[in-house]
Design a protein around this nucleic acid. Structure first.
Lengths: 354, 354
DNA sequence: GTTGGCACTCCACTCTAGTGAGTGCTGAGC
DNA sequence: GCTCAGCACTCACTAGAGTGGAGTGCCAAC
């Protein structure tokens, strides 16, 4: 009998988490079923799952044990079971790198990156849309940080007698600007003079490492313009929230919950760019790739899970992908999509940066 | 008795819409009340409203007439009345320029613009947040179009042997970029040569009016680079969806409806940048400042109203402000806020552009 | 034309079964 | 000591009946 063999061999396996093989199988089945149906899962629905093959009564007693251990919970007595955050955590940890994206999704990703072109911002924006489409989650894409990118070009463009625009091009193709106001009128000639001095001072240096003082020229006016330019550069380099965030498919959060209140509070979090970027970075820093429920500590997102994936360009972290969904989101799909898109995006960015 | 005088003098006024003065007063009262309470309004709630001063029985018969004429509707018999889109339209048309922002709001706006600084994009983004806060609606801000802005500076920055970045600064302070790939390697010297030729060809010309061919130099390679640059410029100038849209307070839509479905479909419209920009432009083109219900023809927004306000810089249209809310949104507040913020934003933009 | 009075309507709420999915427990069997 | 069929029990969900109340439409009187 294959079933007996199966269960025996699995029981023989020591320490699959802290659960014996059958309990783990039951937990997996409950999570999978609940992700699909969003309905509490009863013991009857689980008996046919692979690795279970016992009667519903036995499943029930195992489920009771799983509830005691905090993996499952009941909305009320005489209802089926729902996974707790701990239950999802076990499920996710056991997933490993098994699953890959389905062929249709892979095709979609390939097609997207074959046709992707143009500016990086536009591409990141569209990527967030792609991810949302693939996973039915809200997708967040944080662009590469420009802190360490070398300055490729500095320019001062005169807009008005007292006003100029500092335009910086970085090695990764990013363009940043900063308007600079002068105390007194600056003519075209002095401006280009100052721009040349500025360029000599900072070209090739990462934006975040611009030194505060330049070698003085003979002319005090020009020096004033140069140092205003340096201040502008340093402001750009240290700008908090300088990372660009692209959020796609936020409407999917409305489909995920039926409490309008939850939707509202989740959306208002998504509006706070800095909070989202920090959140993603924090999760990444803790070494997780999935943060479930309260694991990330942002209270309004307690009923959400977040999948994060670093984008690496030439082996160095450059941006982050995040997927936000309800805790009963489709983790295998989300992880697979995030991994595939993250990889392709990383490849793409390293091509451009070259 | 002031009430009698009032009603008489109003009755004497000919053709206030198509309604006699009392019916108009009742309609106004119903709309106002419904905007506040979101509950069907009964005849009893209206008798104390200014300009009514008749018994509830009389109000009832007037309400029945208003319903016959399509201004009001009943969710069911024996319920109070709800305004129809036509009812809201009458209400809005009669508002005129009466209302102004309340002192607290004005203070908030003043404070905002006193502290607003930095780049235009950031300011527009923050403005959308301000508007959302003021009105409890979702705010949309469309930035000034750059089509007619003169080119102030053109630059080609070398990123890789075959790749350069075209950076354009416009007179209004906007910076646009476009990456350009070359068939063969281009060295630093040829690039700066081409950039100079490009500048001579386009400086001072509006982005949308760049001519397709430049006077040839002696060198075929350089000419190729120059024409690639021109193509890039023309691509920027004709870019569809080049207008930048900033949406703030989209979470407020979740608070406005209790049907999650409605929220979802409205949000998914808001995600489509081009649709929103076109919608706002269309409404503006029809000469309306408010589009109620189905007036704008975007089906998923049938239960919404949109308030639009052009931002004018030096008398010329430069961007749009939009406020999106349920049809029972607070029109006086929304109109006042849009007007005040639009004016201040216009002033601010004309300062910067100078 | 306006008004008080009156009968009527119908939603919203409460209460009461009835249903069914699901549970926990128990005692027998392997 | 597991496993499992059987059984009693729990409890959300639904449907139907009853009630209260807000609101209407109509009408006769002023």
């Amino acid at each position: 009998m294959p079933t007996t063999d199966d269960s025996r061999s699995q029981q023989a396996t020591p320490g699959a988490g802290e659960l014996d093989a059958r309990k783990a199988a039951i937990l997996n089945a409950v999570v999978t079923e609940y992700i699909g149906s969003a309905q509490p899962v009863g013991s009857q629905h689980v008996v046919d799952a692979p690795g279970v093959s016992v009667s519903s009564a036995t499943v029930r007693s195992d489920m009771a044990a799983l509830e005691r251990d905090g993996f499952l919970t009941q909305p009320h007595t005489s209802a089926g079971r729902i996974p707790t955050d701990k239950g999802y955590r076990f499920f996710v940890d056991r997933l490993g790198v098994t699953s890959s994206l389905d062929p249709v999704g892979r095709q979609q990703v390939r097609q997207f990156f074959d046709h992707a072109h143009g500016e990086i911002e536009l591409m990141l924006e569209k990527t967030s849309g792609l991810l949302a489409d693939l996973t039915d989650c809200t997708a967040m894409v944080v662009g590469p940080s420009h802190e360490s990118a070398a300055i490729r070009s500095v320019q001062l463009v005169r807009l008005a007698p007292h006003l100029a625009l500092l335009v910086v091009v970085l090695a990764d193709g990013a363009v940043q600007k900063q308007s600079i106001e002068f105390a007194e009128e600056v003519d075209e000639h002095r401006l280009s003079d100052a721009a040349a001095r500025l360029a000599a001072h900072v070209l090739g240096i990462p934006l975040a490492q611009v030194l505060p003082t330049a070698t003085p020229s003979g002319d005090a006016h020009t020096d004033a313009v140069v140092s205003a330019g340096i201040m502008g550069l340093r402001a750009l380099g240290s700008a908090e929230g300088g990372d660009q965030l692209f959020v796609g498919g936020s409407s999917r959060m409305a489909a995920a919950f039926d409490a309008v209140d939850t939707v509202r509070s989740v959306l208002s979090i998504l509006e706070q760019q800095l909070v989202v970027v920090t959140l993603l970075r924090d999760i990444l820093d803790t070494g997780l790739s999935v943060a479930i429920g309260t694991e990330h500590g942002v209270e309004p997102l307690a009923s959400c899970a977040i999948v994060v994936m670093p984008i690496s360009v030439d082996g160095v972290g450059a941006g982050t992908i995040g997927l936000l969904g309800p805790t009963r989101m489709n983790y295998p799909l989300a992880l697979a999509a995030a991994r595939v898109v993250g990889d392709r995006l990383g490849e793409r960015l390293s091509e451009t940066g070259r």
